[in-house]
Nucleic acid binder design. Structure first.
Lengths: 167, 167
DNA sequence: ACCTCCACTGGGCAGACTGCCCAGAAAATC
DNA sequence: GATTTTCTGGGCAGTCTGCCCAGTGGAGGT
């Protein structure tokens, strides 16, 4: 086996450093990365290829600030749904533009939905659309007031720095 | 006012097409974008600059697949917290590496927390850490079984295609 | 009707980067 | 010790980036 190849798919220290670097400055080129990491360009290239092949690195999607684009409101809904209709309900939710994320969960809720809207009136409309989906039996909605911890993975990467690799 | 300049910060059709293009193929260069959109290179460059200046486009962070990196489990917790300790609790949560996102919300929960873990045992540990934060009075935790709708903004962008711009 | 401002176009230029390839050194595995 | 994999350092052609400029066309203002 390769020193860096594991099935669990864990990161090598160099992988972690590379990903951290790209997290901070995503537009860096391969050459610049190699300079900063102190390794050869080909190495960086190979690491990136491997991360992508393994599925660990999905790509570099543009990150939009929804608030700056007019969708200033975010809300979460917990839905309980009728027996065996999870799949169907999920599809209906996916058809609503403002629904930005859905998770199926354990617990007394069955689906967790994240949605956005332009205004209170708009939010009302979106929420209605969501709760009116056929198969939804009970709902509980909350509006996001602030986001003390925005989506992040950095801490996990930093932790990988200490652990050599695998196991 | 300029035809494309609005204060609400809404997207022009060209902006939307550009962002959609970059959403689908994030590594495209400015030149390639200009070719596909049928506009001059300078125009694309100017649009991107403006989107960044406005704050609508935050950048192109690498997107990791946490599952492929060893963090196969995701869980959500809804926390109720003691009067006036939201701030403090949020800071404590931010200090936990596995906490990937926190929102303050209305409703009977006060904070919505997303966290990840490597295994069931690990998840147990993380949940305990979260729940034991001082100031947390009640909690409700759910494990994510699947993600029918992964985080997305594409539908919102596509909708912007129809609307010329602003209002 | 005229003028000004602004965005877009189309083009050019130097510098830098990418993708690709290769042979040898190093390191980890067997 | 032998083998396999990774990393290094270098080279090459093609392409892209950042920057600049003059000209065009439309929107709004006077």
């Amino acid at each position: 086996m390769a020193p860096t190849g594991g099935e669990g798919g864990v990161l090598d220290e160099l992988d972690a450093r590379l990903l951290l670097l790209l997290t901070d400055e995503p537009r860096l080129g391969v050459l610049e990365c190699s300079r900063r990491l102190g390794v050869a360009r080909g190495t960086v290239q190979a690491r990136l290829d491997r991360l992508v092949r393994r599925g660990a690195l999905r790509g570099f999607p543009p990150q939009l600030d929804l608030a700056a684009v007019g969708y200033g409101l975010t809300a979460f809904a917990i839905l309980e749904i009728a027996q065996g209709r999870r799949q169907q309900v999920a599809e209906r939710l996916a058809a609503i533009d403002e629904v930005c994320e859905v998770h199926a969960t354990t617990g007394q809720g069955d689906l967790l939905v994240r949605m956005v809207a332009r205004s209170n009136a708009d939010l009302q409309r979106v929420i209605d659309e969501v709760v009116d989906v056929e198969g939804v039996t009970r709902t509980s909605t909350s509006i996001a007031l602030s986001t003390p911890v925005p989506p992040r993975v950095r801490p996990l990467l930093e932790r990988s720095l200490g652990e050599p690799a695998e196991r």
